[in-house]
Amino acid sequence: MLEVKHLSKDYGGITVIRDLSFTVNAGERRVILGPNGAGKTTLFHLLTGVEKASSGSITFAGNNISKMNAVERARVGIARSYQKNNLFEHLTIRENLMLAAAAATGKSRWFFRDVTNQADMKTRIEETAEQVALTDQLDMMVSAVSYGNRRQLEVGLALATRPALLLMDEPTSGVGPAMIDTFHQLLETLPRDITILIIEHDMDLAFSIADHITVLNFGEKVFEGTPEDTRGNPSVRQIYLGNGDETYGASNDHA
């Protein structure tokens, strides 16, 4: 599904990602772990095409997408949610989801037809709202809903494009324990035809949803394996879990 080969990225001599290779199978839930500054968010920038890799290749669904720009990669089915909310602030949640759905279904070239009342759009908006548990808040302005709801909408905007590959950058960043449960359920109920890469700091959540875990440190892959193997691996404990405390908790990683 997704094949990353010898990916590197440096900014004026500082290497952020170094010779990174990994493969994600279709339908897999892959968790990316790593301490602050490990290059996790940079990896997402490279996968979505917001930034260009210095070297290496990215293959998605059998096609080399390394040369594609961000817009083209979004169109082939790669969607992303952000660590810091990146929403359409002055609109309602319904309008937010409608924009993402309209964009993904090529309705930006509908010059005369209304999209808001299209049956397929309505279905998609309501389905997505259900997936991210926002059905009751659909007609509220984004600026009027809670922070937790905004985190849900952040994922909802990506889901409304019906992606094949979903990149989630710390969906639970800054939310409380109750909301983490909501996200846990959300992730478990997402259909398996979506492949998910997720950066997550909540260890319980990460270990329970992951099929495989990739651990990054200083831009390099230091370990890859099942949650059980990761838990038992001494070098991972050393660099990441450090003190042995597995409930590392949410942090504000801007790597």
Binding site: N86, L91, L99, A103
Partner: peptide, 15 residues
């Protein structure tokens, strides 16, 4: 209108 509200996110969903 979406671009006016958040151009960056509109690009991220493929516009």
């Amino acid at each position: 209108s979406g671009i006016h509200s958040n151009e960056n996110r509109m690009q991220a969903v493929g516009i």
